[in-house]
Design a protein around this nucleic acid. Structure first.
Lengths: 227, 227
DNA sequence: TACCGTATGTTGTATGTCAAAAAACAAGAG
DNA sequence: CTCTTGTTTTTTGACATACAACATACGGTA
């Protein structure tokens, strides 16, 4: 074996500028820093992030494909404002795909993955205490990454990751209610316990119920918002 | 009422150049004109389609988000080659989401939509006779558009449309088998009849079975391809 | 043959430019 | 004062070009 084929020293493939921009924009929307309906002006974003219009526009196309921002031709972009109907659609899809992931995880995850998932819920519970939107999203992302990795369906994973950003956006307001937060953690623990038992059906049921509960909480804040 | 508010004369909002490019590329991949694994060189594509690199690259980002093309940093793009595992994932997700759409359609589609769906299957059956990849894809797209519209979940619709392109890509080879084509039409007729009865569960079951059958056919050609 | 350096091709990013569309604004007619 | 019309400004859509970073191919040399 020559040194050339020794991958261990390979320098980490740094994310391209475009991806960084896309990621920062995603985060800005997920945390509510760019609120729903806000207009996004290319020139301003360029200055704000210190990149060229070329790179910025390519990044914007990604967010657009995710449904995170809306383009009105010749008028401009704005952060998508999620109607009640769309929100319901989002949660329907999320429940469906997350249910699939739950089944697959229960069926084929390794013991290590189950353990990792358990720990990530512990971590999530801690984050709830001294709260910050960023930390919360990071913790939840970790939980999902483990779940989706264990499920072993990369296509479903990709779709759920996208939806997840939109859900975060909705949750910014909705989950600040302490009640739902506690309950949510309980549901996740229950979920993990079903997975530890490899109980596919129970994991599925809990997962779907969990999403539906989250949907209910979110829908409440949305409908009040629209008054 | 002033003329200003009379929408009937509104000129049709023409699709931007970028979208046209994206659409043509999608089609080229779906029909196998750009086969899986083919390298895509930006300059060549620019010349081929007569657009600037700027526009082209933005279109490419869309296809990339759809998973249709794969980017290796600093190396270039190529048409995604679908592994057996990924193909399975695609069909799993498709079955899940299409099952959801079937349920929703059965639940809430209008009578007109059901009728339109029935007719689109008739049309699809005709297309099978004097076959062409383009005509087939167009007919199938029409069927899906009606189904997804009737289901009334725009988020699921968007995801299924994306997956659909990837499925077309797989099917290019797989569905040329006359057998499967005939059977497929029979399944669709059965599906529509369940919807006409508003039989949610039966529609769901047929839908999932249909996708699984399609998956089986596709997987066969994939595994032979990989020999 | 194996190695090394150079030439070439390709992507990633940045600039500058221009037309077309929309919005904001100003001016004039009723 | 209000409505309409004309003008300016802003913003997007698209293009051409440039150049650095990286990767591959090539060709010469040991």
């Amino acid at each position: 074996m020559t040194a050339k084929n020794d991958m261990s020293m390979r320098v980490q493939t740094l994310p391209g500028l475009r991806e960084q921009v896309a990621e920062r924009l995603r985060m800005a929307i997920a945390t509510g820093r760019f609120p729903a309906g806000a207009r996004l002006i290319e020139r301003e974003l360029c200055e704000m992030m210190g990149v060229s219009r070329t790179s910025l526009r390519e990044a914007l196309r990604e967010l657009q494909a995710d449904g995170l921002i809306t383009l009105q031709p010749n008028r401009g972009l704005s952060v998508s404002v999620v109607s009640e109907k769309t929100a319901r659609s989002i949660y329907e899809v999320r429940a469906t795909l997350e249910g699939l992931a739950a089944r697959l995880f229960a069926r084929s995850a390794t013991e290590e993955q189950i353990k990792a998932l358990h720990e990530s819920v512990d971590h999530l519970a801690q984050v709830y205490d001294n709260f910050s939107a960023e930390a919360f999203i990071a913790a939840k992302t970790r939980f999902y990454d483990i779940l989706l990795e264990g499920a072993g369906n990369e296509v479903a994973a990709e779709m759920l990751r996208r939806i997840h950003t939109r859900v975060s956006q909705l949750r910014v307001v909705s989950l600040s209610s302490e009640e739902r937060a506690r309950q949510s953690i309980r549901e996740l623990r229950d979920f993990v316990s079903a997975l530890e038992d490899r109980d596919e059906q129970r994991a599925f049921d809990i997962c779907v119920a969990h999403v539906q509960a989250a949907a209910k909480a979110a829908m409440k804040t949305i409908s009040t918002r629209e008054d």
